[in-house]
Design a protein around this nucleic acid. Structure first.
Lengths: 178, 178
DNA sequence: AAATTTATAAAATAATTATTTTACACAGTT
DNA sequence: AACTGTGTAAAATAATTATTTTATAAATTT
């Protein structure tokens, strides 16, 4: 293929990697996503290894992470023992997947924390002199709970795609787009 | 102060640090924010150093970073040479600040990239056999631009607090809350 | 202006995260 | 059942990021 175009493609992949990195995600994930995206066809671990120059093992790790994040899938092809990796190819959808999987995990962790914390606070008695401190702390936890409840509703707002009602995509966003 | 309450306070600070870490931000930033937040009074670098057990130098670095992110401010007190560090104490506002400063930086970087990329693509001629590839790449860049335009509008949607119209905070969210 | 307290820069070290190497289990083929 | 290609786990290494140490400049007080 034309050398110039090949070079530009690689630049584009780098940019995708950089964008994903802004989600606090390893750049390699972005590079894999970009590579498959630009390939416009699912790829095997071997092909990815070849394309990125990284070990096959690393590809395996990264792909697994991507599947967890909801931005990749393995597909099998009849008569072929290899897994083919397919990626989410709508930018907006990728944004939403990363946003939600990130915050959903936090919400889950916070729930456990909130319960333990509140229980401890309410069950433990303190000196009269510390009573006010204790109440402030309990109030603090209430504020925290409300904040996390908001995050949870925010995640749903994105996941349900309601966000697009108020911050619409432009027309013609993606040739693969639904 | 009551030992139990002190312990619980520290747990709370850890949780704030963990939450901030979900933004891809160093945990120390969260720990400083939490420490000052729980102190309910601005603090000096020395006090922070004492409270966290980290060097004063590190506190200086982290505070500067926080100011960049828009979640802290230095204030001077008359007759006192020390800077006092004040933090954003509304969780929602902190969320918005981190979200926007993160993505605004990306939008800025992307703009430069887009321009250079499009210019290169349009100015460079390729073989007839690669013509289609070239057009696909140009189209790809258009999609990317639209995506980043969306991110930009999304940032504004948060920054203007319009988001709260559709995903409202609960009542009584924060004693310092506006 | 010398002495002291503050903040920060530059270089060195420690801790964490990303990546590769080595090893092994599993499934399909001969 | 031995053989080959496939994916992944565990341990080892490399790269990156966080933190401290050492050094210095600016502001304030004496």
């Amino acid at each position: 293929m034309d050398e110039f175009l090949q070079y530009k493609k690689e630049q584009f992949i780098d940019k995708i990697a950089e964008n994903m990195h802004a989600f606090g995600i390893s750049e390699t994930i972005g590079r894999i996503l970009g590579t498959i995206y630009m390939n416009r066809e699912p790829m095997t671990l071997d092909e990815l290894s070849e394309a990125t120059g990284m070990s096959k093992m690393r590809m395996s790790q990264v792909v697994r992470e991507m599947i967890e994040l909801g931005i990749a899938d393995k597909i099998r092809r009849k008569g072929d023992r290899k897994d083919y990796i397919q990626v989410e190819n709508d930018y907006y959808q990728t944004f939403i997947s990363l946003f939600t999987s990130n915050w959903q995990r936090e919400v889950r962790k916070s729930r456990a924390f909130e319960q333990r914390f509140s229980k401890d606070i309410h069950q433990t008695n303190v000196d009269a002199s510390s009573q006010q401190e204790k109440e402030i702390l309990a109030q603090e936890m209430d504020d925290w709970k409300n904040y996390y409840d908001w995050i949870n509703r925010l995640v749903e707002f994105f996941e349900s795609e309601e966000i697009f009602k108020y911050v619409p995509k432009k027309e013609g966003e993606n040739r693969y787009g639904k």
